[in-house]
Design a protein around this nucleic acid. Structure first.
Lengths: 142, 142
DNA sequence: TTATTTTCAGACATAGAACTCTTAAAGCGA
DNA sequence: TCGCTTTAAGAGTTCTATGTCTGAAAATAA
């Protein structure tokens, strides 16, 4: 994967919340169980996401988390970079020191295109769009 | 980067050896210095690469390493996977559990294409081809 | 034969990612 | 008010990647 487990867990949790039909509160343990993520670790990640404004949290009986409008409008890239820092290392696949746009290695240009497309792939759609379209796909299998 | 520092160091070292015009022996400390890689650590990586048959090693005065025919004909992907295990996690960028070719998430198909192209990029050319073409690029800047 | 050089090999150390554990804080229901 | 529930928060542990250190082994030169 192109990001860390922490980033992946954040994305899976936010998509899980985005796919809830009703805006009920979901406990972190429920997300952890459903997504098979270590519960304590996910709780910490969700705490950070609450701090960043991607989820609203409610303590106590009947408490839990729900997705915020900010998160719905954010892209996967935005959320992952917020949680773990820059996602894709810009360095070329050959790792060559002198490789650059001026003196490109043989793989550089294609790599640059692929890297840009990956960026675009995870930044051009919002979390809400991804979640809604996937919910439709699961409802109407081809 | 899509692979670990260890994998990257292995690739950089093998490309360094591939770019030597003469088949002289190069000491691991020279590669480390040139590529700014921790010398002791690179020595360990080169030992493993010698075991896998990617370099020939010679102890003692005037000793060092040189690239093998096997390595010249191998791809970046083959070498990296030998050194660090499978490179690209096949999992989709959304990390969705149920996402598959049967029930693809909205990003799945494009991601699958990109992933396949990355694989192809680092497996379709040999180390020798990459090194030679890059040496030409450095000789004749545009 | 000895000194020097360089790789070989394993033990060890460090740093960061991933994860666990425990207690405090806050909220709800009775 | 109390008991229970769930999040908040920090300390701590484990695992893995990265890196260091030291001595052995092997080879060359003198």
């Amino acid at each position: 994967m192109i990001y860390t487990k922490t980033g992946e867990y954040a994305i899976r949790a936010i998509l899980f919340l985005a796919r809830q039909s009703k805006e009920t509160l979901i406990m972190s343990s429920e997300i952890a169980k459903s997504e098979e993520i270590p519960a304590h670790y996910l709780a910490k990640i969700l705490q950070r996401m609450a701090k960043y404004g991607y989820v609203d949290s409610f303590k106590g009986r009947g408490g839990g988390f729900k997705i915020t409008e900010l998160a719905k409008k954010s892209s996967i890239l935005e959320i992952v970079e917020r949680v773990e820092g820059p996602v894709i290392n810009l360095k070329c696949v050959t790792g060559l020191k002198e490789c650059s746009d001026e003196t490109p290695c043989p793989l550089h240009e294609e790599w640059a295109e692929l890297r840009n497309r990956i960026y675009n792939l995870i930044s051009s759609k919002s979390v809400q769009e991804v979640a809604e379209k996937y919910t439709e796909t699961l409802r109407k299998p081809s």
